[in-house]
Design a protein around this nucleic acid. Structure first.
Length: 566
RNA sequence: ACGGGGAUCGUCCAAUGGCAGGACUACGGUUUUUGGUGCCGUCUAUCUAGGUUCGAAUCCUAGUCCCCGUGCCA
């Protein structure tokens, strides 16, 4: 028997190890149910993508379910716009929550009833301390806190006061409902944490129905419990909150007990990941919006042209652990290139054109050349590309006095025009300032399609576009938003000082192969020898716009850099 | 200082007392009608000091360093 396959042990990350152990022990009735619980106070970013993939993929792996739940417990910061974008982003990433779209606000009444239960049991009390006083009474990590003078109110008084808080009879900040735990606990989260605060604000879902809103620690475990979540996955900073998460659930009768497990959040170099900073970039106009292609948001990456499959693959490859780490953006770029190489059709586009006249080619003649759409995918077929006497090539593809390792067109040198002919440079026409106006070449009629019947080799194949047939476009070339690996590393400097001033380079009057005018927004494309691009929704009928997703790996650029450093 | 976590190639993740392995990056070669892709190869790591053991990244002891924690945010 062939044992190699059976012996190949599948690698399990530490969370899946815990789950398999739980399954073996019959914990949670052998069920796995996860959730992705965003607060609708910003757009989702690549760090959220890690959590989304983890939660949905874990559920699928163990034949369980994953809910999408909006943790909308703070009406001051939350907006409908964010709800819409979050739903769109999760779907676009390729995940489906079925009919399990939930809201923390759906449970406000249940949470309130549980709070009454806590008061009745003497586990919660209404506190009249001001915010400043609460902070003062809380103590510090090294000093114990002091009991609130309101800690021993009667159950009856607490019930009445909490009822009045709920009805809106007190102003914001005047009172809170607190859990009665231990003001000398070494874990500050356990020093009589606040369960409810008074907020007079209109909630996007519940309107003006509530004047008290639950705090995260009280709400989150209840949300998980109510939904029957088995494994509540969250980031490391909530590790300190787990004792409180467990404590709350322990106080209540007959509630389901989910298990919180923490993992390290994703950090990426050359960017910032906090919602606060991303919001700031948007508000200050440093980027064009949450979906600016330079943003690490899911919507930004989508507009940049990163395929969802590449982001999912990235989430798989970065692994999962409890140690703080920063993933190299080069890995993300690798995933993007790998996916795009497989799926993007190829076209020719000249970004910085210079005219080439093929002097021995008949004026007025047009030939249709057959070009392969995607060498990685035969099913993508071929297309016909018009060729004529005058074409554009890339300025960078010609040098009058080429250095050693430059293989492209130069006086007297022969190169291949992709899918067309071999041409030899015979002359260069310049204006009085020395600017190149035209490059003159002759072609070899025997080399139609780019083949050489005599077997001779040329070093390089160039992309080109026929002048008479070209369509014009604007191309937005994006680069990394920050010019340093870690914009937050210098405590003396604001991260915004490290913004890359040339992270967007707009190139007008690019000359494209004619069939590009049929490309619809969102369609991926590779411009041969240049990079991957995506048609942008800003395009109009008479002006095409493509965003550069990422360049191809460019060994010539690398050689140039190395030469420059010498 | 107190409480909670964490330290393995440049980066990320494995190895759960038994040959420190994979991916990315970098570098080199090869193929090529994209200086792309593919293929092949090279480089580099167990925080420190003791201990247990035939054998330690893993267990024990002592240290060092890093992260989180004093919102009526999540």
């Amino acid at each position: 028997m062939n044992t190699t396959e059976a012996e190949k042990k599948e690698y399990l990350n530490f969370i899946h190890q815990i789950i398999e152990e739980d399954l073996k022990n019959g914990k949670h009735g052998g069920r796995v149910h996860t959730r992705f619980p965003p607060e609708p106070n910003g757009y989702l970013h690549i760090g959220h993508a890690k959590a989304i993939c983890l939660n949905f993929n874990t559920a699928e792996k163990y034949k369980g379910l994953c809910n999408l739940r909006f943790d909308d417990t703070n009406p001051a910061k939350e907006e409908e716009e964010y709800v819409t974008s979050i739903k769109e982003d999760v779907h676009w990433l390729g995940f489906d929550w079925g009919d399990r779209l939930y809201w923390a606000s759906d449970y406000f009444q249940q949470m309130y009833d549980f709070a009454i239960e806590m008061i009745r049991k003497g586990k919660a009390y209404v506190c009249d301390l001001t915010p400043d006083e609460i902070r003062e009474y809380r103590g510090t990590p090294t000093e114990k806190g002091k009991n609130s003078p309101f800690r021993d109110r009667s159950v009856e008084e607490n019930l009445i006061l909490f009822e009045k808080m709920k009805k809106g009879e007190f102003p914001n900040g005047s009172r809170t409902l607190r859990a009665k735990i231990d003001m000398s606990h070494p874990n500050m989260n356990m020093r009589d944490p606040i369960m409810y605060r008074i907020v007079h604000a209109t909630h996007h879902n519940t309107g003006d129905q509530w004047c008290v809103y639950p705090m995260y620690d009280w709400a989150h475990g209840l949300e998980d419990s109510i939904e029957g979540i088995t494994h509540s996955l969250c980031t490391l900073e909530f590790e300190d909150h787990r004792p409180l998460y467990d404590w709350f659930l322990d106080q209540l009768e007959g509630v389901h007990r989910p298990q919180q497990i923490e993992f390290a959040r994703l950090n990426l170099n050359f960017t910032v990941m906090s919602k606060r900073k991303l919001l700031e970039l948007v508000r200050l106009g440093l980027v064009k919006g949450w979906d600016d292609p330079r943003m690490p948001t899911i919507s930004g990456m989508r507009r940049r042209g990163f395929p969802a499959a590449a982001i999912r693959d990235f989430a798989d490859r970065i692994g999962l652990a409890k140690r703080e780490s920063t993933v190299d953006v080069a890995l993300l770029e690798f995933c993007v290139r790998e996916e795009l190489n497989r799926v993007a059709e190829r076209r020719m586009a000249v970004l910085n054109p210079v005219k080439v006249v093929i002097t021995n080619y008949p004026a007025g003649q047009v030939e249709m050349m057959e070009a392969v759409n995607n060498p990685e995918d035969e099913g993508a077929g071929t297309r016909q590309v018009p060729f004529s006497r005058e074409i554009y090539i890339e300025k960078d593809d010609f040098m009058e006095n080429p250095p050693k390792k430059f293989y492209r067109l130069a006086p007297g040198r022969e190169v291949r025009l992709r899918y067309a002919y071999l041409v030899t440079c015979t002359n260069v026409i310049k204006d009085e300032k020395g600017e190149i106006l035209e490059i003159h070449c002759t072609y070899d009629p025997e080399t139609r399609g780019g083949n050489t019947p005599d077997g001779r080799k040329v070093k390089t194949t160039l992309h080109w576009v026929s002048c008479d047939h070209a369509v014009q476009a604007t191309i937005r070339q994006y680069d990394r938003l920050f010019k340093v690996e870690n914009p937050l590393s210098d405590p003396e400097k604001d991260y915004k000082e490290f913004i890359h001033e040339h992270s967007l380079d707009i190139v007008e009057n690019c000359q494209l192969e004619p069939d590009l005018k049929n490309f619809k927004p969102g369609q991926f494309i590779q411009f041969e020898r240049l990079g991957y691009f995506i048609a942008d929704p800003d395009a109009t009928d008479d002006n095409l716009i493509f965003n550069r997703t990422i360049t191809l790996r460019d060994t010539w650029a690398k050689i140039q850099q190395q030469e420059n450093q010498k």
